[in-house]
Simulated assay, not measured.
Amino acid sequence: MSELHQAAAAGDFNQVEELLRQNKCDPNQRDVDWSSKTPLHWAAAKGHTETARILIEHGARPCLRTEYGWTAAHFAAEFGRLAVLRLLHSLHAPIDKKDFCGDKPVRIAEIYGHMDCVGFLKKAEAECQAYRLTASQKGITLDDTDEEWAEQGKENKDNRIPQNNM
């Protein structure tokens, strides 16, 4: 876990800001020991909204996924971090992506009983999809795809061993 991961998880805004300002750490570094979580994943899970904001302002990509396909929005939904979900949505982060099992953040919030997040995410998903359509029509480029994860998913699908139906 990098120094930036640790500071983001701890919610140490000043340390995160200093590390980013000095370009000492990559805000998109994936921690292989922690399922490829980025500092933004940690900030979202812990509910550190201002830390998440400064990470994004310094280039953290909210579309990046863990090895299981979770975005920052999935982690915020799991822990009921409504303020983080609102921030992500306000910055046009993808809050409606499915993980490896097909679950969107709204489903994760349902599973954990965070009904305030469920209500918000249902409305926000529709707004996210509408914005995606508008952006496409206007030629606005969105950063809503984790290319590395998409490629790994393709490789995993192509390399699966067929099971015999008995």
Results as ranks from 00 to 15, higher is better:
R107W: 09
E78W: 11
S36H: 11
L55Y: 06
R61Y: 02
L40N: 06
A9D: 11
W34L: 15
M1G: 12
A10K: 11
N165G: 10
G11V: 03
C25D: 14
Y68H: 12
Q22R: 12
Y112V: 03
S90W: 02
A135F: 02
G47C: 10
G11S: 04
H58N: 15
G69I: 00
C63A: 15
Q129T: 07
G80V: 10
C128N: 15
Y112C: 09
E18Y: 14
Q163N: 11
Q15Y: 05
A126W: 07
A9R: 13
D99N: 12
G47T: 04
D33S: 10
A73R: 06
H58V: 02
G11H: 02
I161D: 13
L88S: 10
I111P: 00
Q15F: 09
K123P: 00
D143T: 05
E78R: 13
K157E: 14
R81A: 03
Q163K: 13
S136E: 10
I111Q: 13
A52I: 02
V32G: 07
T134I: 05
T38E: 08
E125S: 11
G153L: 00
Q152D: 01
G59K: 04
V16S: 05
I161Y: 09
I56L: 04
H92D: 09
P27E: 06
I56P: 00
A126G: 07
N28F: 08
A77F: 09
A124S: 05
A150E: 11
L121F: 04
G139C: 10
K37L: 12
H5C: 07
N23F: 01
T38Y: 06
E127F: 08
K122E: 15
Q163H: 13
D103Y: 13
Y112L: 09
G139S: 12
R132A: 15
K98D: 14
L19R: 08
